[in-house]
Amino acid sequence: MSGAWVTVLKRDLLLAFRRRSDVATTLFFFLMVSSLFPLGIGPEPAVLSSIAPGVLWVAALLAGMLSLTRLFAADFADGSLEQMLLAPQPLTLLVTAKVLAHWLVCGLPVVLLAPLIGLQYALPSDALSVLIISLLLGTPALSLIGAIGAALTLGVRGSGLLVALLVLPLYIPVLIFGAGAVAASQHGMSAQAHLSLLAACSLLALVLAPLATAAALRISVE
């Protein structure tokens, strides 16, 4: 059983490696969006650092969403999704492998790039570390929830926009706690509460999202 899980993960990572440009698109999107704000708003450090948590979190969230449609679409078109459904292993488990691959490829690089962008916004160093931790705890929830949207819109025309409409409302709690954690640490308060809630969001998503995704995949393939 674990063999199949590891294989699905490895296959997706290998495919991502062979199509590096797709990964680069996500990262550049994050880089560009978060660099546009300082250019548009002006270089006032006080203003920049006060909008930083929200802007960085929204940029990370949109960047992750950009790649969501690719999560199952290729598998659906070439028939590997059918085969995944017919594997004796529970589909929910295989889904978690795919989502983990998506997070490693699209979520983790954004987390690692975020402190660099944070400097551009004159974020102090302790806020920067809270930013990294909050993204690290929150982005898995984004991938997990996004997978439900990606599965539901498989084979639907204009699925890119539809995923956004389905998934963005569900991202709101993650955004609030994530940006809230960074803002709290900027104001000299403890980010503990926000971070705990963020971790709770991710854990809840880990339990529920794969079930919903698997059910949605079965409907889409039928």
Binding site: M1, G3, A4, T7, V8, K10, R11, L14, L15, R18, R19, A74, A77, D78, G79, S80, E82, Q83, M84, L86, A87, P88, Q89, L94
Partner: peptide, 22 residues
């Protein structure tokens, strides 16, 4: 549908699809 990945070799495709099915 063949269930093959364009970016994987024939051997990788076959090995991985068998392993993914347990």
């Amino acid at each position: 549908l063949n269930g093959l990945k364009d970016d994987l070799t024939a051997l990788e495709n076959l090995t991985m699809s068998a392993r993914a099915a347990g």
